[in-house]
Structure formats: C-alpha cells, structure tokens
Amino acid sequence: MSMDSSGMIRAKSPRISELRRLIKVMCNRVVVVVGIGIIAFFILVAIFAPMLAAHDPLYTYLESILNPPSGIHPLGTDQVGRDVLSRLIYGTRISFLVGIFGVTIAGTLGMGLGLVAGYFGGWVNAIIMRCIDALLAIPPIVLMMAISAILGGGLFNVLIAIGFGMMPTYCRLMCAQVTVLKENDYILVLQTAGASSWRIMRHLFINAFPPLLVLITTNLGTAILMEAGLSFLGIGILPPTPSWGAMIYDGRRLLFSNPILSLAPGGAIMLIVLAFNIVGDGLRDALDPKLRGTL
C-alpha cells in the first residue's frame, strides 16, 4: 500500500499483494530458490516419467543381472535385471504421492483435532487427547503395521496408515499451542466482540501454524522413509511397483558389491527431504510478520 500525491491511500487488493510479497521474499533467497528448483525438478520427473525412462521399470533383462553403470543402463541393473534409473524415475511418483498425501492426511486430521481439543478444552479435550495418548503409546511403525495389516497393502492403504501413524504428533502440538494462545487478550477481545467459535479458531490456527510448518516439512521426508519401511515388511507398496524405499531395502544386501542400488534412491530421498526442509524454513520466515523487511 502506498500514498499518492493527494495523500489518499491507494488500496490494492491485500490478498494479491500479500501473495506477491510472499513470492518475492522467497525468491530473494538463493537457498530457497534452489530448494524450490529441486522440488520442481522432481515433480516434472514424476509427471513425465514415461517419457524420461528409457526402459520399462518392470522389465527384467535376464541376460544383464547386476550390471554396473553403462551406456544402456546409466545406473546399472538390479538383482533381477531391471533398469535402476527407470525404476528411480517411476519411483518418484510413488514417493511424492506418499510424502505429500501422507502428510496432508496426518496434518489435516491431527491439526483439526488438536485445534478443537485446545479451543474447547474441558471434556472435549480430555476425550480427544486420551485417544491421542493411546495412539502415541504405540510406536508409529507398529501402529502403521497394524493398520496396513488390517487394510492390506496398496498405495491408498499405505497413505491411510502413514496418515494415522503421524497424526498424533500434529494433534498434540496443535493442542498445546492453542491452549497457550487462547489465553491471549486478543482472543478475549474477539470473545467480547461476539466472534463465532469458527472465527476465533481461525485466529488461533494462524498463530499456531508456523511451528507446525516445520514439522510438516520434516515429515514429508519421514513419510517417504516410512513407506520404505512398510514396503520392506511386505505390507506397503506391493512389488514389483518401484518405490524408492523398496529399492533401498532391496539393495541393502549388495551394499558393498553394488552400492549404486541403494545409493541412487537414497540420494534422491536425501535431496528431496533437504529441499522440502529448506522451502519449509523459507516459507515459515516469509510468513512471519516480525521478519518483514529483513528478508
């Protein structure tokens, strides 16, 4: 917003200028741009996988098992003769889906329940949080195994398992944040003014969200790794569908003779997790009004 010659305020739509500012701030930092670049790269790879992959990821070249990197197979072949690069490219699809949707399910459910529990307090809080405590008492991998075992394998069920497995942390954190924030005078002002619960919860959410944003970005990587764990146990993505996690586990026995089998998907996971973390940090800083003008 700026003043023109007559001293009147030229009103721009605040929403658009806010978005523009956000993009500008994010793009001003080289690291964040690199992070966004990496994520964009992987998204493109996931979309255009069939065009990028030179081989069918499921086809077994029986004559060339465990080949070292070569012109035909840039990252070599695995123990049943499948092209590693092609599997890596197709695996991007699964890993992205699992990471993004797993965290979306966990975040939406967890933060929603946490917000309601923290805002209403009393017996609502008691009931929700005791259920969450019960879930937290079970190690996430065991919880996810149980869910997967009941629902069976497959992408959709893996997403549900991961979503529920990670949900309790979001709920706890959100509830703790909201419990503290709702004592603030600005929430009392809203109550005095007659604001609806919905409006008050929106204010609480906006203020409670930034620390959770960090959790979300870390969890995007965790979700990819969890899927790997589930696939390894045979209750995740069903073989032979390529997924990065499954590829790491498949290659672990050959870590010394053919390290590329594990290192390639491992490197991809590392890169994407790093990129998500960088972008998450950048986003949190850009959304913080206190850092305005310093970034």
Partner: peptide, 24 residues
Amino acid sequence: MRSYRKNFALIFQDPYSSLDPRQS
C-alpha cells in the same frame, strides 16, 4: 448475547498481548 455485544467494548492493559501479531 451477541446482538448486545456491539454496545460495549473492552480495552486491555497490555497493548502487546491484546493485538493479534499475525493480523495487520
């Protein structure tokens, strides 16, 4: 009560915690 609420308002002691830090 809601319809009455616009007839009175509250000013708080602490000007720091009484304004939402994430609202303009």
